[in-house]
Design a protein around this nucleic acid. Sequence first.
DNA 1: TCTATATTTAGCTAAATAGCTAAATATAGA
DNA 2: TCTATATTTAGCTATTTAGCTAAATATAGA
Lengths: 103, 103
Amino acid sequence: MPTKVYKALADPTRRKILQLLRERTMTAGEIAEHFTSAKPTLSRHFSVLREADLIQGDKQANTIIYRLNISVLEEALLSMMETFKIERRGNQDEDRKQSDQSE
Amino acid sequence: MPTKVYKALADPTRRKILQLLRERTMTAGEIAEHFTSAKPTLSRHFSVLREADLIQGDKQANTIIYRLNISVLEEALLSMMETFKIERRGNQDEDRKQSDQSE
DNA sequence: TCTATATTTAGCTAAATAGCTAAATATAGA
DNA sequence: TCTATATTTAGCTATTTAGCTAAATATAGA
């Protein structure tokens, strides 16, 4: 996984944006309502997340609707688990380690 | 999961240190041999990882033996999965709870 | 005690980052 | 065309971060 993704995740505001978009798509303005930072500040956060391919913006009229690239986020976190050889609980395939740890 | 952990993971050198320690404990000097950066630079990376509680150093004579806090890393990544409601492959249910808290 | 070794701390610089305001861009609608 | 709205870009500042060298600290052993 590229460092861009790790860096994108390192900021609390950006993590919260991702969490918001986990629930539904939102316009830039709607997202901004959840924060106290100025809109240009949020806008730059969007661009960091876009660069990491974690979100995607669709221009509709004069608003931009952002949505989470859920598969990218998913792949990123799974690859992080693999990077550090952390087992995914409840799934022992392909990780030749202790199989059971259950919850 | 605290931002400290996310930030600690955001640097490639630190990720590599964690990967090295995933295999076995190593002295600060041994770890440093795997990198081209100066030792004081590595030392600061160790301290960032220590602050995040991802590694732990044991002083033995005049060397320091570092080891990975595997359970902390494991919990961190699993909590990251939960933060973003990413399902663990091979287990779709049981994720109906949320334990969000990015800060 | 003196010296060598391992590591960290101090103190610096350069680059990256997050925040701001003001200006630019694009679109919808009167 | 003119105005209002939504968003980004430009340009600035302050803070953080990663790198460096030199100095400090701690320990082992001659």
